Measured scan of single mutants.
Amino acid sequence: MAAGGDHGSPDSYRSPLASRYASPEMCFVFSDRYKFRTWRQLWLWLAEAEQTLGLPITDEQIQEMKSNLENIDFKMAAEEEKRLRHDVMAHVHTFGHCCPKAAGIIHLGATSCYVGDNTDLIILRNALDLLLPKLARVISRLADFAKERASLPTLGFTHFQPAQLTTVGKRCCLWIQDLCMDLQNLKRVRDDLRFRGVKGTTGTQASFLQLFEGDDHKVEQLDKMVTEKAGFKRAFIITGQTYTRKVDIEVLSVLASLGASVHKICTDIRLLANLKEMEEPFEKQQIGSSAMPYKRNPMRSERCCSLARHLMTLVMDPLQTASVQWFERTLDDSANRRICLAEAFLTADTILNTLQNISEGLVVYPKVIERRIRQELPFMATENIIMAMVKAGGSRQDCHEKIRVLSQQAASVVKQEGGDNDLIERIQVDAYFSPIHSQLDHLLDPSSFTGRASQQVQRFLEEEVYPLLKPYESVMKVKAELCL
């Protein structure tokens, strides 16, 4: 049975990233139509530049190519590739079939990587351009969430054990800070992308030097003109047959890092959902379990974690691919890159769409948070109580021993009897502590235990987050809708 299948058929496997999760716009960027249309555009740009620099290419040939950029006979191309065992030459023939007058000058002087690699770089750039505003929107939604809850005390956790208090907004800023680093890295790697350009079979530009009869300047002009037509500021000066596969490492490393950030955020949300302090959106008709109707599973956060793990592992592909590119190139890269580049971007696209949807509907339960604080705060307040007693004339050592005994009794009630923490009640009825009984409410005010959390939130948002989001103001209103 021949390899390949009808990918629109229910009898043929289709990647869930495309069929179930990723956005239509990201799927289109990695589609065959987008790819092969870009090949034709690159052939047109090459012909236009070659004509401008004096090669015998007519206006009629150029116009014929322009008129057929979208006229792609995919069936013919597939048949040609089956016959020739070469995808680029299959599309040269297919393009030439609908451009008979231009057929002889299509791909003039070029090698397969002229269309293959340059198209990949265009796709990487455009895919990054799709991700950047999506990530900015996630940051914006979380920034709104953090600002609104900047002063809401909550129990902090280290080692997932109760620690000092923080605020809900401050905790959210930990998430935002990681995503801001990801946004900066995505922008950097996007701006650092260079075009492969017009380089020939081993990167020496020998074929173009021959076409222009040894004119170095025209060869350099050709490279520059096509690079500018493709919208790049610069091209690699040095290439082998391909652009260095280190570029793929750079791009997928940034995406993998984004995956790590999203995994951490969504894990926190899942843990908070278990504590009943916070939940992701839950639709009115949504079913959490087929057997347990009360369940409210954090399905979206779980999906993000599941896909983020996949995204983090994909960076190993370009690392290994770059390491086995012998001399000017081997074909070890080809099949692998067809999979890992598309999957990385479709996965990143999915987790950003999902995280935006989550961040637009996060639900906080202040009463649950308050109750958990009441359970733990008495123990945390013991040092403040000791200091207040010393100020009232008591002995630190005597007070410490009193607190120690009462704390152990209260802990026994919590752990052995399943009761509430009654340390404060014990202190309130103990005559030894009568000098500070009137101060206990103040000493137990949760806001006095959150330090500068709310001020940190305000400063972080104003100095770091809002300036970073400013270039994306025009796209901030787009909502994230999930079908599944």
Rank of each mutant, 00 (worst) to 15 (best):
G4P: 10
G8R: 15
S9A: 11
R14I: 15
R20Y: 00
S23F: 08
P24L: 12
E25M: 13
F28N: 09
T38D: 00
T38K: 11
Q41S: 12
L42A: 03
A49R: 01
A49C: 09
G54D: 12
I57H: 07
Q61L: 07
M65G: 02
S67H: 10
L69F: 11
L69E: 08
K75E: 13
K75P: 06
A78F: 07
L84W: 15
R85Y: 14
R85P: 00
M89P: 02
H97C: 10
L108F: 11
G109R: 00
L124E: 11
R137M: 15
F145N: 05
R149T: 11
A150V: 06
P153L: 00
F157P: 00
F160L: 04
C172T: 14
L174Y: 07
L179K: 00
C180A: 09
Q184R: 10
N185V: 05
D192G: 11
V198D: 00
A206L: 08
F208R: 02
Q210L: 04
E213I: 13
E213T: 14
D215F: 12
D216P: 11
V219R: 01
K224R: 11
M225C: 13
V226T: 10
Q241C: 03
V247L: 13
I249A: 11
A256D: 05
L258Q: 06
V262N: 02
C266P: 11
D268Y: 00
L271K: 01
L271Q: 05
N274C: 12
L275R: 08
E277L: 03
E279Q: 03
E279K: 08
G288K: 00
A291P: 05
M292E: 04
E302V: 05
R303K: 04
V315G: 07
Q320A: 10
W326S: 04
I339C: 12
L346Y: 10
T350L: 11
N357S: 15
S359N: 10
E360W: 08
E360K: 04
E360C: 05
G361F: 14
V363L: 14
V364K: 06
V368W: 02
I369V: 10
R374M: 14
F379V: 05
M380S: 03
A381C: 06
A381L: 09
T382H: 01
A388E: 06
V390S: 06
K402E: 05
R404N: 08
V405P: 01
Q409M: 10
Q416K: 10
L423T: 01
E425C: 07
V429S: 15
S434N: 09
P435F: 04
L444W: 08
P446K: 07
S448T: 11
S448D: 14
Q458C: 15
F460T: 06
P471T: 15
P471L: 15
Y472P: 07
V475E: 09
K479G: 15
